[in-house]
Nucleic acid binder design. Structure first.
Lengths: 343, 343
DNA sequence: AATTATCCAGAAAACGATTACAATTACATT
DNA sequence: AATGTAATTGTAATCGTTTTCTGGATAATT
């Protein structure tokens, strides 16, 4: 008994003919089976089975207007594990609901981002989950006017009110810094990010909050900002290490900054945590396998993805609902790079 | 002079009316502008501009049958950087051509993979670039019968003939092993993968090729196979390290195996490369920032993505063309984890 | 028993594009 | 001047669904 795989795609017409009903009935079986007599339901369903019927999304979307079935996922760098971790969370929520995900990767380029946005709108995505490349509102005018439901994560462009999910960045960074203080470190460096991003500003503020609260003087605080990416952070870390006394306790602003910093440390043959202690923002698959294992701030990215998907679904279902922000607390995972109280 | 953003989406009808032409002409301006008089082209184009017209992909796809505009990208684990690196390469090729990418992540689960495949087929993707979760043909019958153009990368399920792009795995692993031999190492371990995958078998074969060619006896060769993933590889590495004399030269079968192995090494406080030398399969963003920097085999994933996209485009354009395999040579990036000739 | 309400299924009109075909025009050829 | 040809443009059918509207059958109410 071999299963039958039709060569060409069967249409609703053919299913209707095979079941001896009208296409309207087939459609009803698909969309609201309760409104069709049980007898016909089975007849139609077996017809669908044997013909290997698969409804055309294009036709559905075209006819019904709404396309509850396609969602865009836009990020600045698809190679960054934070974003793919979020994507996984989004996927979990959406695939179960038969919603396809269209990905767009701007690769940190506003131009590509614009192309991707256009593409998504043409695709008639019913919503977009985005980590925008820029903080400037002007780049998103067209998107905003398209009326598409949007959920941001990581950061929201200046002056826009949108649903979003974020980490409590200030508290997270403060906690990480406090951890370093409690370990007895006395001078502190931050490999930061571009201050045009609220995310970078908040994390920096958290860093300073903790330091000032502990009465650490400004002469023991160094900050160099990179560009969220490996190379820029590598340069920033090098600037920092060149003018900084050791021992030093270092924090990084995100996962790529961590890699750049590690590279700089590695090249300068500085020992972690003896000469330079480190707490990294963002958990990474290999953080526990690093030598030494890295103490990190975990933003729970896949959970953020879940939350973003839920927000989007809610917004799509009820466009008029109030704008909502979901703020998640991060978790400090203490490993060895931050140094130890007892050596 | 503010740009006009229409609230509701304009249709081709409206554009036609605004430009004082028929919808056929508007369509032609879109699809083969040369067949329309220049004068009308500009009239139509300005009408599209002012109305903010954006063609409906659903309608296009429905009417034209072909949907040259949507491609599926299916992987077993979207969190694995090798796959996202490939995705980036695919993206580069496709977005420029206005083709959207629908991602599917099976998360190493055949069931989820099947759901994703169904979803993609419903989406009427015009082709699929896939890194299949299983090697067993039976899981892909429905997909195959759908007639959708498919390009595999990483591996091809048993007994299927499909376009694909792969690394010359055997040669790559042999080269890596030879590197270790030349460095003077004398016993060798492999943290391998499931041998049901041709990819794992080939890499293992390359490992043995080089060893046998150098006259290394079987008593100096250890192999433990994991599951391509971190945890399984961690366990395999632990088995290996438990029954292996040091010094040892180790190879890993992929990036996740590397992380698992590193974790095991780290826990056992084994020094790299003094006690255990290491060559890792797959370049990773942080490989050069590890302590010590990791010698790796680089598969050029984003280039593989480019190639896969090109293959798919070619197949979509000409379904009858002969099946083609693209085999890429990998590159050994020598850093410090493999040990040094001169200490 | 007559009337009304309820339910179910079909007919047919959309949705927004593409495209075969027909019609018009302009131009070249004789 | 008449005819043929090529280049443009328009008309209308069509893609595969959903959905409104309508009719007929059955059940419920009086």
């Amino acid at each position: 008994m071999t299963k039958h795989y039709p060569t060409a795609r069967a249409t609703m017409q053919e299913v209707a003919a095979a079941a001896g009903v009208s296409t309207a009935t087939v459609s009803r079986v698909l969309n609201s089976p309760t409104s069709v007599s049980p007898e016909l339901v089975v007849r139609v369903e077996t017809a669908m089975q044997t013909l290997g019927y698969r409804p055309s999304r294009s036709a559905r979307t075209l006819r019904s207007g709404r396309s509850l079935q396609r969602v865009g996922f836009l990020v600045s760098n698809i190679q960054n594990s934070f974003f793919t971790d979020v994507l996984k969370g989004v996927e979990q929520q959406l695939v179960a609901r038969q919603i396809a995900i269209v990905v767009g990767n701007s690769n940190n380029d506003i131009g590509y981002e614009a192309i991707n946005i256009e593409l998504m709108l043409e695709e008639q995505v019913s919503g977009i989950i985005a980590q925008f490349t820029s903080t400037q509102r002007k780049f998103y005018q067209a998107l905003l006017h398209s009326q598409a439901p949007i959920v941001c994560f990581d950061h929201v462009p200046e002056g826009l009110s949108l649903d979003c999910v974020m980490t409590n960045n200030r508290a997270a960074m403060a906690q990480a810094t406090r951890h370093l203080i409690e370990l007895g470190h006395r001078s502190f460096g931050l490999v930061g990010g571009p201050l045009s991003y609220i995310t970078a500003r908040e994390r920096q503020a958290g860093f300073l909050d903790a330091l000032h609260a502990a009465g650490i003087g400004d002469d023991a605080i160094w900050i160099e900002n990179g560009d969220w990416q490996i190379d820029g952070s590598y340069a920033a870390a090098n600037r920092l290490l060149a003018r900084t006394p050791q021992p030093l306790a270092l924090l990084t602003i995100n996962n790529e900054a961590t890699i750049g910093t590690l590279k700089a440390l590695q090249e300068r043959k500085l020992r972690i945590p003896e000469e330079v202690a480190l707490v990294a923002f963002d958990e990474m698959a290999w953080a526990g396998a690093y030598n030494p294992p890295l103490t990190v701030v975990n933003q729970h990215p896949s959970y953020q993805g879940n939350a973003a998907a839920e927000l989007l679904l809610a917004r799509m279902a009820e466009p008029g609902r109030p704008i909502q922000q979901v703020v998640l607390e991060a978790e400090l995972i203490v490993r060895q790079s931050s140094g130890m109280l007892v050596q």
